[in-house]
């Protein structure tokens, strides 16, 4: 299992691996927001938590179609399915690798981009905490979507269409934590809900992803 994780991480940082693209996309989306809504700093401060969450979600989404498709195309997925690793473990590791290469950098970059958006001081802590709790769920749910569309030639758009509705609860609670935190309100309930969703999704979703992958490999 560690071998698979290391391989995926190594592939991500090698040439053409696309590491950092998600981060760059996050940056560019965030920079585009003031251009579209105007430079008024009060308005930016109010929407900053939501913008950061939406940016993080979109960057996650963007890198999903390569998550399993590359292994599918070169035949590694067939070989992995006949290896001693259960497919449930394979998809979990894939999701973890996706989180480390995409989700974690987003969490770390969010405070910097928060400055650009005039995020209130109290907000930084909660933006980081909510992203840290929420992005693993985004990766795991995204892996399910990637498994659904793995055999399709142009699965990218369909993948977004399938995954976005599944992201709704995570986005709502995650952005709520960040927003309430930035306004200095109590965040206990949404934090618990967000953590609960992440935990449940990490525990259960790999079974669905593996089942879907088995059907696609048939």
């Amino acid at each position: 299992m560690i071998a698979l994780l290391l391989r995926d991480l190594r592939l991500a940082v090698r040439a053409g691996g696309g590491f950092g693209l998600g981060l760059a996309f996050f940056l560019i989306v965030t920079v585009m927001v003031p251009f579209s809504v105007g430079p008024e700093s009060e308005l930016l401060a109010r929407i900053a938590p939501g913008v950061l969450w939406l940016g993080a979600l979109l960057s996650c989404l963007l890198s999903l179609d390569r998550l399993l498709a590359l292994d599918w195309e070169d035949g590694s997925l067939d070989l992995l399915a006949t290896a001693p690793l259960p497919l449930e473990a394979v998809v979990s590791i894939k999701a973890l690798a996706h989180w480390i290469t995409t989700g974690l950098p987003l969490v770390l970059a969010a405070p910097v981009l928060g400055i650009l958006l005039n995020l209130p001081l109290e907000g930084f802590r909660w933006v980081v905490i909510s992203l840290f709790l929420g992005t693993p769920a985004l990766s795991v749910i995204g892996t399910f979507g990637a498994a659904l569309t793995v055999g399709l030639k142009r699965g990218g758009l369909l993948l977004s269409l399938l995954v976005m509705p599944l992201y709704v609860p995570t986005l709502i609670f995650g952005a709520e934590v960040a927003r309430r935190g930035a306004m200095g309100m109590g965040v206990e309930t949404p934090v618990l809900m967000l953590a609960g969703i992440s935990a449940a999704v990490i525990a259960l979703m790999p079974f669905a992803s593996a089942a879907v992958l088995r059907i696609n490999l048939r």
Partner: peptide, 17 residues
């Protein structure tokens, strides 16, 4: 099946939100 779970979850999330 998966969508149903998330649809119900969304319903509660939206209520809360």
């Amino acid at each position: 099946l998966v969508g149903t779970v998330f649809a119900v979850l969304s319903r509660y999330a939206v209520n809360f939100w």
